[in-house]
Design a protein around this nucleic acid. Sequence first.
RNA 1: GUCUCCGUAGUUUAAUGGAUAAAACAGGAGCCUUCUAAGCUCCGGAUCGAGGUUCGAUUCCUCGCGGAGACACCA
Length: 568
Amino acid sequence: MTPVLHRLLAQALEAVGAPPTLLRSAAFELASLEHADLTSPVAFGLAKELQGQPKAIAERIVTELKKRMDDSIGVGRIEVVGAGYINITLKDQQLWTMTTSIDRPVNATADAPTVIVEYSSPNVAKPLGIGHIRSTIIGESLARIHEFVGSKVVRLNHPGDWGTQFGKLIVMIQDQWGGTVSDDRTIRDFVQIYVQFHERAKDNPELEIRARQETVKLQSRDAATINIWKAICKKSYQEFDRLYARLGIHFDEIRGESAYEADVPSIVARALESGVAQKSEGAVIIPMPGLAAPMLIQKSDGAYLYATTDLAALQYRINKYHPDTILYVVGSQQTLHFQQLRAAAIALGIANDAKTQHIPFGMLLGANHKKLSTREGSSIELESVLDEAVEHARAIIAARPDGKEWNADDLNATAQMIGLGAVTYNDLSQNRIHDVVLDWGRMLSLTGNSAPYLQYCVVRIKSILAQAPEIGSEIGNPPPLVDQEREILRRLVRFPTIVRLSAATNEPHRIADYLFDLACAFHRFYEHVPVLAATPKERNLRCQLIDRAAKVITAGLHLLGINVPERM
RNA sequence: GUCUCCGUAGUUUAAUGGAUAAAACAGGAGCCUUCUAAGCUCCGGAUCGAGGUUCGAUUCCUCGCGGAGACACCA
């Protein structure tokens, strides 16, 4: 219905003499829920143009709108409120019709845009630390959100599997483990020998020299060295995969930095030939006028860098996927790097200006508001955070009145959904740009604005519907609605708009915010309006209403990467 | 030093330039013989400071103050 309304608004604006530029952008927006369903502040802008009072102009627009509206349009009330808002309240019937199947995603059409999302990108031989939780969770959510609005999404993981740290690890593996990585080794063992390397290197400088030699051997594809490297990667990916599976994440392509090694020299050569890059202090740089530093693409010792690899990766992705947009879900510390990457890609003719988009997010800080660092040993493994959250949820379920009735499998599965949901929601319900201080109490919170609050909402609905198996007959024209019913419907119609807004800004927290508000409306309904004990007609309506609410909350939680249990 | 981001109740957050700045947590008081109390109802408290643009500023601009990050051979 909104396209029709927007057309009518444009016509009404034309009738009152608004300039043509305004007609094209004429649109109603979501109104603040306490005031109306839709609103337009267009009269405020027009007041100056037409030299009148906003309120009087709004009245004239409304008069013109009313001339063009009939009963079929679904507008219950249109009125001027306050200093000049044009507010629309929708008819119950309209709300009811519009919320049919409103939880469904938009199907990707043949000409749908392709969106690549690069996220998670852990470092091999290091645990997926809690610092990676943000990229992983935000990236997966954005992938789902863009899919929902009809884009073709490619999920890419760009792990750090190359670089000087491998020389150090290989030296230690030679000295400590006889040069082989047995099956029972874990990432923790890699971290341990990596730390040991630095301790020993303090007194034994020759270790650093050997590490550099091993790095060179790795780069020249020395067979024995490559085998150790492969074993390190394999063990690491096994552990990463376990975590991704737990979080419901599956990448379309996992391609580490090492895969681009062969493409990198030609990029540097091309950059030099075209004059985009130049030699400076023995290194190769791409000057970056307007930015704080040039982009360094080759070190003076001939080695390549992160930036060079990213250029190669960008070229590879564009050739393979022909994306419209590439989202890099990477911490805000790397803002300069992505500014450089974008500028260099344009200068080299790899990508146009609109293609690459850095999606920055704030850091995860310790309770002391300081950076969590691996070296200081203060880093926390993602897996242990998840385990702790799940244990917490399990304890709460067990302590509930029916806690004894759960069988072990159900208890386990439900505790997973609640615990992981709580951690995920804690991150996604906040604007991603802010730093997050690690707060166990808040992260594991199962009450208030949290995932379990939303999950509980769906569980309550499922419980009612399970006791009303006979419902389902179509309701063409719903009976007059009580306030609590209308308040749910008014929120349900907003779902697609909210998801579109979330996709446009790449901000999942808008969905979390919306879902919480919807869930509040449901809980109020639940407390005050009976379903099972209502008259047959009301009971039918209410069952269908709450079924729609459950579907939207479930779909919305799915967009955040959160599942809903059958009961809790 | 330069550049970027952030600054909202005690705490953690929300608010496409729009209406009386919205919640959660923490604290206090109520509500289970009625669909799962992980719930509901009620109670106080906030836009860092100074200017500017605007009919209208938490939002945009300038300058301060405070915090974080980045600033060529790490990734």
